[in-house]
Nucleic acid binder design. Sequence first.
DNA 1: TTGTAGGCGTTATCAG
DNA 2: CTGATAACGCCTACAA
Lengths: 336, 336
Amino acid sequence: MSSRTRTHGATVKITDVAAAAGVAPMTVSRVLNTPERVSEETAARVRAAIERLGYVPNLIAGGLSSRRSRMIAAIVPTIASPMFYAPVQPFTDTLAQSGYHVMLALSGYEEGSEDGLIRAVLSRRPDGLLLTGAAHSPAVRRLLRDAGVPVVEIWDATETPTDMLVGFDHAELGAAVADFFAAAGHTHFAVLAASDPRASARRAGFVARLARHGGTLVAERTLPAPSGIEDGRAALRDIAPLLTRRTALFGSSDLVAYGAIVEARARGIAVPAQLAVCGFGDFEISRASELPFTTVSIDGAAMGRMAAEHLLARIAGRPAPPRILMPARIIARAST
Amino acid sequence: MSSRTRTHGATVKITDVAAAAGVAPMTVSRVLNTPERVSEETAARVRAAIERLGYVPNLIAGGLSSRRSRMIAAIVPTIASPMFYAPVQPFTDTLAQSGYHVMLALSGYEEGSEDGLIRAVLSRRPDGLLLTGAAHSPAVRRLLRDAGVPVVEIWDATETPTDMLVGFDHAELGAAVADFFAAAGHTHFAVLAASDPRASARRAGFVARLARHGGTLVAERTLPAPSGIEDGRAALRDIAPLLTRRTALFGSSDLVAYGAIVEARARGIAVPAQLAVCGFGDFEISRASELPFTTVSIDGAAMGRMAAEHLLARIAGRPAPPRILMPARIIARAST
DNA sequence: TTGTAGGCGTTATCAG
DNA sequence: CTGATAACGCCTACAA
């Protein structure tokens, strides 16, 4: 209706609103950011002007002036896996409630690219940072420290977080799976793990604990990261000849485990009679597929929520715990 | 503790680098943005200073000054589905190659929240916008037009895109599935569709075309959005009593289709002998599950890439096609 | 090829 | 409760 004034690309700014409402720009700013410090009367007049002119505040200018971007950056390897997208939504929602936007950056799994990505991200001056994993180059750690931004690392559980951490111990978790299998009387084992650091840690913990139990490692394969159903199928096809005795297999994700199960059954290898399988992640497929299978459940959503809360606390100057370990538990289903 | 020091002058800025390198700030800016306009000699000196001081440019300040944020916003209902995350990675990668960052905003499926979300996003002054779907309120369309930002809509195929569009016709696609089933001799049909606009359009197209073929619609169910494997299983449980004759079922996503297949087989309903199933999306599970199933394949990655390219073209002032329809094809597998 | 002047739109700060 | 002024850090435009 009243858009004729805007056909020249002239965007409405705070001074336009101020003029229209008969107040100073600063008052408009207050109506937007600290309405409790403005009389209801003036605020109403200003809001009417904002509405009438279709004013959209410029957060770039505001950010430059206030030195707060009201933005949090999250660096995640990929969103093409429930593992990583599970924390994102709660993280985003929690921050949105406090007026923060989330900028999601996908890092992939390649080494060495992290430095450039973090630099790029920091150039937008985020008020906080979420990182996936806790293994960073000294250069990155220095960059982060110099920036003085609150940082929360998720998924991993190093002893020396950069700042804050919400994760769990993957090696210990792998060991727990080995214990679980051993307690069920298994003596022969196999493991299929993606090549990313966390899957590798789970595998290492699994293998190390097997040794203690005197178990035999029949097969061990490294899969691409991120790995999917077909990687699991292919790997099982590969190791099938080695499965001459009853074997317990640990897959680095539920997709891998599902692929292994599908391929095993297709080849007449009975699950769990000849091959017991445990996955990781408690994705929907682990409970809803034809053969619901055993997996390790971790609460990704809670991890995302806590990460957001800790960042908000730190931003507000409130104390936040430096290191939180999340529980993980094995959910036994029909595959073991 | 050190989170305050950043804003107390501890940050290295362009003037610090300039002083250290013995040049004017503008020269530093040029080294960063248009290196071809600086002599190699000075550039080297400046780069050394940047390195030494650990300078990270402030894109907030740069954006305010240049009126270009070098940022593109993408609004997506959810990333918890291959449907929506498939285009995101290529979109992000393509833009990254031209120096643009992507800000991902999750809108959910609720009506009416779009207005506020787009307002929030526009307040960061993105240089371009990706929207999922093409049905927007008049208020939103006005907001977008006033902002003067290049916009690309994906997934949908309205006749009147806001600006540019890369999508396909869901109703037509549903009709094609009906044709496919009819050509195979089917006379009785069922459809399970999520409640989102695109799934609804596919269903409507499917149902309308059935009528033309004189087919009988045995069952029709609306599922939550986004719907998963368990929704498909539950829906099939619900309609199982109605499947007294051979029926052809269309699911609004491969997860729904997979759930239907799993539940059908669990109940002794043979697939495809008694129940033929077609899904949508060509997710990995459609080809890697125990019974590879028929689905509709659409190239989500290509959609993301094209969306990015068109935005880049528009930003650069080059022409870009207003409306591109992507091909979709039915991939027949063992479920039909 | 390099430098200077001025402003981008908003908010912190201090006054009234 | 409201206003005036001066940054915020960088880049456009022009000049040398």
